[in-house]
Structure formats: structure tokens, C-alpha cells
Amino acid sequence: MKIADDIHNYYERLVSQHFAVLKVDEKYDEDFIADLTCVVLNQLPTRYIRHEVDMAFYLPASERFEMENKVKTAIDKALVFMTTHHTN
């Protein structure tokens, strides 16, 4: 088993999904997005999984809603931080 291939943090997917909704890739360059991703994920707890289907099947809707709200809040805070502190 290779941890990098078999196990990942579910919050990474949620962050990526929310970035797509916000069209982050259309507004910022790759370096900014990489830094933004780190700032966002460092605010969130980890939730390691092996398969996406496990989360879809076992995660209660209320917990999924809470996780999505945490992601939105973390992204909002990170964008404020990054836009005021990021240098090229």
C-alpha cells in the first residue's frame, strides 16, 4: 500500500469543488492558488478516506453540510488573508 495513492484527505476534494464553484482558477494564478489551498487546508481538520464512495455512503447529511460550511468559511478567511498579504 502506498499512502499517497490509497489515502487522501476528504477536505481536499471539498476545497477543490468549492474553488470550481468560485472559479478561482479564472481569478488567480497557479502560485496564488497553491498558497491559498495550503492556507485553507491548514484551517480545516483532516478526514482521511480511501474511497469516495465510503464518504457518500457513510457520511450523514448533517455532517456533510457542516464540512461544507467549514470549507466555505476557511476559503473566505484565506482569501482575505491572501489578498492582503500575498506578494508575487
Rank of each mutant, 00 (worst) to 15 (best):
M1Y: 09
K2L: 08
I3N: 04
A4P: 01
D5R: 12
D6A: 07
D6Q: 09
I7L: 06
I7K: 11
H8Y: 14
H8D: 04
N9T: 04
Y10C: 02
Y10Q: 09
Y10P: 00
Y11H: 15
Y11W: 14
Y11T: 13
Y11D: 03
Y11V: 08
E12K: 12
E12A: 02
E12W: 03
R13N: 06
L14D: 12
V15C: 00
S16P: 00
S16L: 02
S16A: 06
S16F: 03
Q17P: 02
Q17W: 02
Q17S: 12
H18N: 10
H18M: 06
F19C: 01
A20H: 11
A20K: 13
V21F: 05
L22W: 11
L22N: 13
K23G: 11
V24N: 10
D25A: 09
D25S: 09
K27M: 08
K27P: 04
Y28V: 09
Y28F: 15
D31T: 08
D31N: 09
D31Y: 08
F32R: 12
I33H: 05
A34K: 04
A34W: 02
D35Q: 14
D35Y: 13
L36N: 11
L36E: 11
T37N: 08
T37Q: 07
C38L: 07
C38H: 03
C38N: 07
C38Y: 05
V39E: 08
V39Q: 01
L41P: 05
N42A: 07
N42F: 09
Q43P: 00
L44H: 06
L44P: 01
T46Q: 10
Y48Q: 09
Y48T: 05
R50C: 05
R50P: 00
R50F: 05
H51P: 03
H51T: 08
H51M: 13
E52L: 12
D54I: 15
M55I: 12
A56D: 15
Y58E: 13
P60V: 05
E63M: 15
E63P: 00
R64S: 08
R64T: 01
R64H: 10
F65N: 12
E66D: 15
E66Y: 14
E66T: 15
E66M: 13
E66H: 13
M67L: 08
M67V: 00
N69G: 11
N69S: 14
K70D: 14
V71E: 00
V71H: 01
K72T: 10
T73R: 01
A74E: 06
A74H: 02
I75P: 02
I75L: 06
D76N: 10
D76R: 08
K77F: 01
K77T: 03
A78C: 04
L79S: 11
L79E: 11
V80M: 11
V80N: 13
V80G: 11
V80C: 11
F81R: 02
F81T: 03
M82N: 11
M82T: 09
H85S: 05
H85T: 14
H86S: 12
H86W: 15
H86M: 10
H86T: 09
H86A: 12
T87S: 15
N88M: 06
N88H: 12
